[in-house]
């Protein structure tokens, strides 16, 4: 079974925010209005963390794109009361929107604050409804959602591979953020495939994972030169 993982090269990432926009567009993530935004209810599957280090004027500013980490030992699925979030056999942590009762326990339990909640029924202008991505289902009010590693793309890639009777090649399945990154800082692939770029990067001395000591075993690796 493949084990999908992502590697984000922070040395290359400029923090341009393209991944965030690509993600919102690809996954039909709801856009909240100004009032909701002021209440901190913006829904970002791909978030951007900003960390300042050092004393003025020798400041280092780090911008870190933060998707769901699809942990191998996810704290979120352990607390879900209704099997609405689970880890599938390929290691993707998935949400079942139609089953979620909206208790938000998984959000409280996620150490990475990767999940977002539909506080209201998501709304779009009629015109915008025309250009929704038909591959991704829309969410309803009162359910939790999060980055899916664009699992709908995997579905398509699998179908194509099966039709051609071959294995999925490295780089064939890639989520919108990795696909669109102008700095080519986001890599995606199969950790089980020893030839894949992601496998190599994950073993690089530059690689680290967020909050590793929690034992969540995230499948998103960050690469950064330790200075």
């Amino acid at each position: 079974m493949p084990k999908w993982a992502m590697a984000i090269d922070l040395d290359k990432c400029t923090g341009c925010g393209d991944c965030m926009a690509a993600c919102k567009l690809e996954n039909n993530v709801a856009i909240v209005d100004a009032e909701q935004a002021a209440d901190d209810r913006v829904m970002l599957w791909m978030d951007m963390m900003t960390i300042y280090e050092g004393e003025y004027p020798n400041i280092k500013l780090k911008r870190i794109p933060k998707p769901c980490f699809h942990c191998d030992n996810p704290p979120c699925i352990k607390v879900c009361p209704v099997h609405a979030t689970y880890k599938n056999e390929e290691g993707l942590v998935a949400q079942i929107y139609n089953r979620c009762i909206g208790c938000r326990y998984c959000m409280a339990a996620c150490p990475y604050t990767a999940k977002v909640f539909n506080w209201y029924e998501p709304e779009w202008a009629d015109e915008f409804k025309t250009c929704m991505n038909p591959d991704v289902s829309l969410r309803m009010k009162g359910v939790v959602e999060k980055c899916s590693f664009c699992a709908h793309r995997l579905q398509k890639v699998k179908e194509n591979a099966r039709a051609d009777d071959r294995e999925i090649s490295d780089g064939e399945y890639s989520p919108a953020c990795a696909d669109s990154c102008p700095a080519e800082a986001i890599f995606f692939g199969d950790l089980e495939n020893k030839e894949s770029k992601v496998f190599k990067l994950s073993n690089s001395p530059r690689a680290f994972r967020e909050l590793e000591d929690l034992g969540t075993i995230p499948k998103v690796f960050y690469l950064s030169e330790k200075e």
Binding site: D18, A21, A22, P182
Partner: peptide, 10 residues
């Protein structure tokens, strides 16, 4: 070369 900025997506 395949890159894009956020406003391009919109």
């Amino acid at each position: 070369r395949g890159g894009m900025c956020p406003s391009g997506h919109s």
